[in-house]
Design a protein around this nucleic acid. Structure first.
Lengths: 114, 114
DNA sequence: AGCTTACTCAAGTTGACGCTTGATAAAGCA
DNA sequence: TGCTTTATCAAGCGTCAACTTGAGTAAGCT
């Protein structure tokens, strides 16, 4: 059903609702980063960062690899497209509705001026 | 500073992280609705709907008017643009990064084949 | 004036979130 | 082999979010 996509959107927008996680996304759009690097950047314990990464991973926005002792995080921007498409679709629906309202209003005014 | 925009994004993505609120946005993109109509639609108490509307109002996505005893809710889609632009900007940054990686890879392969 | 309708406020419960501390694992280095 | 680095697991703490119930308000109806 549609509930699958709704679950996806739940975890996606939840992931994006925290400014630290949004900034991690911004940081990763410039390249991979390790948990330690992110912990230093945000003056935060590695445990806290690790949990943020888990939320981002659950949303599909970020994935982790393995390289020596590190777990480099990288962006999976295909998921940003899911959130973007939801927003854009609803913006489009609203725009069409406003266009209809405007044209109806224009017709009304035309009728008045006769 | 930028923190103002970050606060905006916090409440915006938090508002969009709940499927009932997302569906209210979808519903409102087709026209105004009252609290009672929404409560019936979601088989939910008016109090619960009222609180969802407050969250959406705080995010700027929805505003309420007054008409007789009702408080008709309508969409304020300018705020959807704020969320959309954040996502699109980060998708753009990632796309540019991937383009650079690809061209670097292409140059590497060119060098190898010599 | 009394009654209904539409809605909000206030308080309480339940569960999730963000972060902490302490212990543990796994990989490299001396 | 011990020691350090990098990261995760587990438990706990304080806060906030979603919903409930009960009471209250304001506008319309008879």
């Amino acid at each position: 059903m549609n509930a699958i996509a709704e679950d996806q959107l739940d975890v996606l927008f939840t992931a994006l609702s925290d400014r630290t996680r949004r900034d991690i996304v911004v940081r990763l759009s410039a390249g991979e980063a390790t948990v330690k690097e992110l912990a230093e950047r945000y003056a935060m314990s590695m445990q806290a960062v690790s949990q943020h990464i888990q939320v981002l991973e659950r949303s599909g926005l970020v994935s982790r690899g393995r390289h020596r002792q590190t777990r480099p995080c990288r962006l999976e921007p295909a998921r940003l497209a899911v959130a973007a498409s939801w927003i854009e679709e609803n913006r489009r629906m609203w725009t069409e509705r406003m266009d209809r309202l405007e044209s109806r209003l224009a017709r009304l005014q035309e009728g008045e001026s006769r």
